[in-house]
Nucleic acid binder design. Structure first.
Length: 274
DNA sequence: CCCCTATCCTGAGGGC
DNA sequence: TGCCCTCAGGATAGGG
């Protein structure tokens, strides 16, 4: 499932692939994928426009257009933004296609349709509540101990629940929360307000470390994540705990424990994480 | 405020 | 070979 590293990989690749390209023709097979405005008018809104920069906020992609409006894309669980030859065969779950002036096509594909697309100014996207208020970017300079403490200090909820909440820290999901907690030596099931200063400091250190490594590996293709070129990332080979419940810890050999916390499968090492 | 559950959705994998 | 069941989960809404 695409989290910050996967979305960042897509954003970087898109920046190189579509910046400066003009949109020639747009087709929308599934207008319900477009949450705002009515998906049926997306073609007339986009046609003729040129892509400029590509931004990422949390797990949201924001493709800037020369009108100043943006095409917002959230990949959900199984969404893909692909750049391919306009003549390439169209996959079963391709919902939106935009042909470009270089002979390529930008395609949005999503088997489970948890993904969403929206179009408008940043203000309009916010007002329409398709782009929610998001917390601090964990790979930015703003990600400080003060910021993280504000997310963790007072609440009684679990670390897992607090870090899944995109209003606190933006871009973390099930994979990288479990990975960061393992690196920090903190059980995801711990109550936030009971964490020590040392443990909060360990999380501050671990979160960007885990994310930076994953970006360097072009993301984790544990489900069916693919980059813009339909290629897999390699970070799944480096995951320490995610998807490894019942298997031995790479560090100490203890059997990794699998639980459900905040409605999500959670895996941790009962020996390394206390 | 916070938790849990249901909802959306398809494909993979297990059992028979 | 195929059918049914369960599970996976990001975001959001509604109930407790």
């Amino acid at each position: 499932m695409p989290e910050l590293p996967e979305v960042e990989t897509v954003a970087r690749d898109l920046r190189a692939a579509v910046s400066g390209r003009r949109i020639e023709h747009v087709s929308v097979d599934r207008p319900d994928i477009v949450r705002f405005p009515d998906g049926r008018i997306l073609p007339e809104l986009l046609t003729g426009q040129r892509f400029e920069n590509v931004d990422r906020r949390g797990k949201y992609l924001l493709l800037e257009l020369d009108s100043g409006d943006e095409l917002m894309v959230h990949l959900g669980m199984t969404g893909h933004l692909l750049v391919c030859d306009a003549d390439a065969p169209v996959a079963k779950h391709t919902h939106i296609r935009a042909s470009l002036d270089d002979g390529n096509e930008l395609r949005f594909d999503d088997a489970r349709r948890f993904g969403r697309v929206a179009y408008g100014s940043r203000e309009a996207l916010t007002a329409a509540r398709v782009l929610p208020k998001l917390g601090v970017e964990p790979l930015s300079d703003a990600f400080s101990q003060e910021q993280l403490d504000a997310v963790l200090r007072k609440t009684t909820r679990t670390v897992k629940a607090a870090l899944l909440d995109q209003k606190g820290v933006a871009g973390l999901g099930n994979i990288y929360i479990d990975e960061a907690c393992f690196l920090a030596g903190v059980r995801p099931t711990r109550r936030c307000h009971r964490l020590t200063r040392r443990e909060r400091a360990a999380l501050l250190d671990a979160i960007p470390r885990v994310l930076t490594a994953a970006v360097a590996n072009r993301g984790s293709s544990v489900d069916d994540y693919r980059d813009v070129w339909n290629a897999r990332g390699s970070n799944q080979e480096r995951l320490q705990v995610y998807g490894r419940g019942g298997l031995p810890c790479f560090v100490c050999g203890t059997t990794l424990r699998r639980t459900t916390t905040a409605g999500r499968t959670t895996v941790y090492c009962p020996h390394c994480q206390r």
